[in-house]
């Protein structure tokens, strides 16, 4: 085999893969958690909090992620806030992912019949108890396909981390390509890496959906 692959490209991409994974996993997890919280506050929170989180969602869905990352990494130091490249990227991804996920959660919450909350209240549950034990578990199941889709996007937009100098898969591939001028090979192989990541994520999401499946909740 061409030593370009075995000695240069693959080792570099494997390094990038580790970094990408370290970006994706916490961003996906906290992005989902954040989405649930933001979505719930947007529907059931006190009015001022609803407005606050609506504004947050509008901003983070409305501004290109690349611009958000630039602001986090290059802009905030102007007001004395410094982040490592990795931290800036993860924060950017979590904020963006939460905004998108909150939209799926919000839709799912609105689709739940008011009778569920009434029945919970009639049994003496507080609003918080009703949300935690009755409403959110149902909404989460309904939002899961959408949130899963968001995770798949996240895997791909994690490649933007290289623009704040956090070198992950795409960053490593660019470096190797620029150095060796073998763009086609480098980016074809990196495409396979992403395809693999997305396939694994799709498989895991299917498993989770199966695990949470309940008669009457979509997935048959």
């Amino acid at each position: 085999m061409d030593p370009f692959y075995t000695n240069e490209l693959i080792p570099a991409l494997n390094r990038g893969l580790v970094m990408s994974t370290m970006l994706i996993i916490p961003s996906a997890f906290f992005g989902l958690l954040g989405g649930i919280l933001v979505g719930t506050f947007r529907v059931f929170g006190p009015k001022p909090i609803q407005r606050l989180f609506n504004a947050y969602t509008a901003i983070f869905r409305g501004v290109p992620l690349m611009v958000q990352l630039f602001i986090l990494y290059y802009g905030l130091p102007n007001i004395g806030i410094y982040f490592e490249a990795y931290t800036a990227a993860v924060i950017g991804f979590i904020l963006c992912s939460s905004a998108y996920n909150s939209e799926y959660i919000r839709g799912a919450l609105l689709a739940i019949k008011s009778g569920q909350l009434q029945a919970a209240s009639a049994l003496g549950m507080s609003k918080t108890q009703a949300l935690v034990w009755i409403i959110i578990p149902q909404a989460f199941r309904r939002a899961l396909p959408g949130c899963g889709n968001e995770m798949i996007y996240l895997i791909k937009y994690s490649s933007l981390a290289y623009i704040v100098s956090c070198i992950e898969l795409t960053g490593e591939a660019r470096a190797i390509a620029a150095q060796s001028f073998r763009f086609t090979e480098a980016f074809t192989v990196v495409a396979c890496y992403y395809l693999l990541l997305v396939s694994i994520a799709t498989y895991l999401l299917k498993k989770v959906e199966k695990r949470l499946a309940i008669p009457g909740f979509g997935t048959k």
Partner: peptide
């Protein structure tokens, strides 16, 4: 209020069982 509601059960026309 929550203690009172525990004392006063309610049955709804459309059941409102917790679907999950």
């Amino acid at each position: 209020l929550y203690a009172y509601r525990q004392q006063v059960g309610m049955i709804f026309q459309d059941f409102n069982l917790f679907d999950h």
